[in-house]
C-alpha cells in the first residue's frame, strides 16, 4: 500500500489539493493499479530501446518565421481574471 506521505508528495507535484477522503481512497486505488502495472517488471527488456514515435515521420520542421497569432483581447477573453493587458493571478507571496 502506498504511504499517505507519498500520496501527499505526488499531489503536491501535481498541484492538486486532496480531501481526507480522497487521500485515503487514492492510497488504495493507486496501489491496486500499480500492482497490475508492476507486471511489466517481469519482462526481459534488456537492450530494447524505449519507443519514441511509432509511425515513421520525417521533416516535421518548418521555417521559423514570425506570423500573426491570436489577438491579445481574444486570448484574454476566456480568462477568469485579467488586468490591463495580462492574466491576473494571486500573488505567490500571499
Amino acid at each position: 500500500m502506498i504511504e499517505r506521505d507519498e500520496v501527499l508528495h505526488v499531489a503536491r507535484l501535481a498541484r492538486l489539493a486532496l480531501s481526507e477522503q480522497e487521500i485515503e481512497a487514492m492510497q488504495g486505488e493507486l496501489s491496486k493499479v500499480l500492482d497490475h502495472v508492476a507486471k511489466i517488471g517481469e519482462l526481459d527488456l534488456d537492450g530494447v530501446p524505449p519507443s519514441t514515435h511509432v509511425v515513421e515521420i520525417t521533416g516535421a520542421l518548418r521555417p521559423d518565421e514570425p506570423r500573426p497569432c491570436l489577438p491579445r483581447e481574444v486570448a484574454l477573453a476566456s480568462a477568469p481574471a485579467v488586468s490591463d493587458d495580462g492574466f491576473l493571478v494571486p500573488s505567490p507571496q500571499a
Binding site: L8, A11, R12, A14, R15, L16, A17, L18, S19, E20, A75, S78, A79, P80, A81, F87, V89, P90, S91, P92, Q93, A94
Partner: peptide
C-alpha cells in the same frame, strides 16, 4: 490551472496552500 480559461477557485484547499499555489491546487481540486 485557473489562469487562462475555465474554472478558477480561490485559495483555501485542505492542503493549506495559499496565494498562487493555493489557487492552482484548489482550482484543480
Amino acid at each position: 490551472d485557473g489562469v487562462r480559461y475555465g474554472l478558477r477557485a480561490e485559495p483555501g484547499g485542505e492542503d493549506g496552500e495559499r496565494g498562487l499555489l493555493g489557487m492552482y491546487t484548489r482550482t484543480r481540486h
